[in-house]
Design a protein around this nucleic acid. Structure first.
Length: 697
DNA sequence: GGTAACTGGGTTTTT
DNA sequence: CCCAGTTACC
């Protein structure tokens, strides 16, 4: 018997999903309908029926979701699994584990480096120069745009040419050059033994499709459960198909109304396709909402976008209470003030800050609010937007880690070299030819489309590649400008030394020693940055290998520096600020949604296409379904004009187009255009700093 | 030819 | 804050 009864508190439909047999199962789960509980119960039920937990694979989209589900499943299963652990994680994290384990079969080096989006752009930028497309004369698309095109092609399984023609028509004149660049990009990655995010999925897909390795890999699991299936892309669909060719053992959970990753190549039609294409699929709909009060669901149901099939309509047993509020306020600083007022009032009434959240469409929408929160002494943590890993110094350090085990990693070399005074893009590129030779960047070597291992790749684990580090390093130092030679020599010998260190913690510390002088020289605020890196070094100590650590950090960047310090202490209380994307799957007692104005939410950039607008609406639906008890939408009426902010002209924007008559009927509209008195709860120290409005007065 | 320092303009969402 | 473009120095 289990420590905890897995079926406790499940309603009839949830129970049906949890106890469903081995045939294909689709659970259409509306927001807040106990999807996680149902999935966890299903895992427990499978184990109860004798399935080995090690033969269950649970795929989610975010690390947070994966961690939560694995922890709850472990708790519910108790010691029943006899030590065998459930497989689980994000598609990309599981792909990394499997691809690392089969690196040799894929013709990849044992130590894989993972490129994040900005690393991938850097590599494309390097290649662009090699191909003589670096000039600014003919307005060649930027590296970021190129990566978008490439990624879209991979994730929707369409030819790049078609992607350019349909989604990036302004790049059309450069199609031939772009395609050539992509071939070089694929060859370059292969030559250097690096994988970008898309490659992880493609490599997993190739392994599964391979006649030798595929069947064994697919047979490793009896049950595959996929969460948020409305957000899978073509590559992920294919992976799932290869894992469960006839649908046996497959469970997918999703809600097409919450599909918000179309920009990443996802398509919610994949969810409907499961039942349509796999015979004998059972479909269970979860519409009973256990999260929110009914008046809030009235709004959610009113804004829910049209569905492929019969729409899910959310019902709650929690009737009564007030409706969601629509707060029409003067401008963004009034909005900030009203949000903080409301948060502090709730705090005064005993609601922890942690039970409240401020959600927004784009990360920068909270800029003014963050100033106001800081001024009034309200602690907060922000999710979404710039990640810790994207901070320059962290990337510098990770580049050092990657170079320890993979000498051919050009992006890492490029980054490290440019940190030296006197080495800019041009010199760094020349030094690459000395330090990372044979990495397949030279235009003459391009031509292998990377589709299969050519057999010429051999990964010398001693890393000598016929060269000697000392010779190479001496040559590089000689090629550097005179003023830079000392620093570069020090970096290179520190790298050799670091490679000689044995325990992981010592290796990581050696890498920090290596970059420390460079960071001190480069960044004015180096003290804070070095503190971050100290934390990374101690976190690295517990990893299996430095390379795994670098990949883990890349795939799952800590959301903030705080994340590295471990879980927040129990007495820590802070308000959560989050993008709606990062808030998916989460809930709070009180939710404040800011910038509900056309141009902000929905975003200006999405308004040009009907599909873009539809996705914004689903995003709005996700936002509207996060609150348990209280939900407030804020509409600033007076917004600085986007295009010419410097003119200090203001225009009156219309309210968000999401606020249809039906939606407004489910809202309490409050006119808060006039300045409202500041509320300062007892126990909160008064703060001397003025509010923003005072600054303007 | 290449780098550093400065200026001006722009910024979606994430694995 | 990051990028591109410009200019002055090496």
């Amino acid at each position: 018997m289990f420590d905890t009864a897995w079926d406790e508190g499940l309603d009839e439909r949830q129970l049906a999903a949890a106890t469903h047999g081995d045939g294909p199962l689709v659970v259409l789960a509306g927001a807040g309908t106990g999807k996680t509980r149902t999935l966890v119960a299903r895992v427990a039920n499978l184990v109860d029926r004798g399935v080995d937990p090690g033969r269950i694979l649970l795929l989610t989209f975010t690390r947070r979701a994966a961690d939560e589900m694995l922890a709850r499943a472990a708790a519910v299963c108790g010691d029943r699994g006899a030590g065998r652990r459930l497989w689980g994680g994000t598609f990309h994290a599981v792909a990394h584990r499997l691809v690392s384990a089969h690196a040799e079969a894929l013709g990849l080096p044992p130590a894989l480096s993972v490129l994040d989006a900005s690393d991938a752009s850097d590599l494309l930028d390097l290649l662009r120069h090699d191909h003589g497309l670096g000039g600014t004369a003919e307005r060649f698309p930027r590296a970021g745009t190129l990566l978008d095109i490439y990624s879209r092609a991979v994730n929707t399984a369409r030819p790049a040419r078609a992607v350019i023609a349909t989604a990036f028509p302004w790049c059309g004149p450069h199609t031939a050059a772009i395609l050539e660049l992509f071939r070089a990009y694929v060859a370059g990655k292969r030559g250097q033994g690096v994988l970008d995010f898309d490659d992880l999925l493609l490599a997993w897909q190739s392994l599964l499709a391979d006649p030798t390795h595929g069947p064994g890999l697919a047979a490793r699991w009896d049950h595959v459960l996929v969460d948020e299936y409305q957000d899978v892309n073509a590559a992920q669909v294919d992976i799932v198909r290869l894992l469960c060719p006839d649908g046996r053992g497959l469970t997918v959970v999703g809600d097409d109304g919450q599909a918000i990753y179309g920009f990443r190549g996802a398509d919610s039609r994949h969810l409907a396709d499961v039942a349509r294409t796999i015979p004998g699929t059972r479909v269970i709909r979860l519409e009973r909402n256990f999260r929110s009060r009914q008046p809030l669901l009235d709004l959610a149901n009113a804004v829910r976008p049209p569905s492929d099939g019969e729409a899910l309509t959310l019902r709650s047993d929690r009737t009564g209470g007030s409706r969601a509020r629509l707060v029409r306020c003067h401008d963004v600083s009034a909005e900030a003030r009203l949000v903080v007022d409301a948060v502090l009032t709730a705090a005064q009434d005993g609601q922890r800050l942690r039970d409240q959240a401020v959600l927004m469409r784009s990360s920068h929408h909270s800029d003014v609010l963050e100033v106001e929160l800081t001024a009034r002494g309200v602690p907060f943590v922000k999710y979404g937007g710039l990640k810790f890993l994207e901070a320059a110094h962290v990337k510098d350090f990770v580049a050092g880690l990657r170079l320890l085990e993979n000498r051919r990693d050009e992006v890492a070399w490029f980054r490290l070299l440019r940190l030296h005074d006197g080495i800019g893009p041009a010199r760094a590129r020349r030094l690459l030819d000395v330090l990372a030779p044979g990495a397949g960047r030279e235009p003459g070597r391009v031509g292998n489309d990377g589709g299969s291992g050519s057999g010429t790749d051999h990964w010398d684990t001693s890393g000598n590649d016929g060269w000697n580090d000392c010779d190479r390093h001496a040559e590089a130092v000689a090629a550097a400008p005179a003023a830079t030679r000392t620093a570069l020599g020090a970096t290179l010998s520190a790298l050799v030394q670091a490679r000689g260190r044995a325990p992981i913690a010592a290796r990581a510390a050696a890498v920090l020693d290596l970059v420390r002088p460079l960071i001190v020289d480069r960044y004015g605020d180096h003290a804070a940055r070095l503190t971050d890196l100290d934390r990374l070094v101690s976190a690295a100590g517990s990893a299996a290998s430095l390379n795994d650590f670098a990949a883990e950090v890349t795939l799952d960047p800590p959301a903030s520096t705080g994340d590295l310090a471990g879980p927040p202490r129990l007495d820590d209380d802070y308000l959560v600020l989050s993008t709606v994307h990062s808030a998916k799957g989460l809930e709070w007692a009180s939710v404040h949604l800011i910038h509900v104005v056309d141009g902000a939410f929905p975003s200006d950039l999405s308004l040009t296409s009907p599909t873009g607008l539809a996705e914004e609406q689903r995003l709005f639906y996700v936002a509207a379904t996060r609150a348990r008890d209280d939900l407030a939408l804020y509409t600033p009426l007076r917004m600085p004009h986007h295009r010419r902010a410097r003119d200090d002209k203001h225009s009156y924007a219309p309210a968000s187009r999401f606020l249809t008559d039906e939606a407004v009927a489910a809202l309490d509209v409050q006119e808060a255009d006039r300045p409202t008195p500041t509320v300062r709860p007892a126990g909160m120290a008064p703060v001397a700093l003025p509010t923003l409005d005072d600054l303007w007065a």
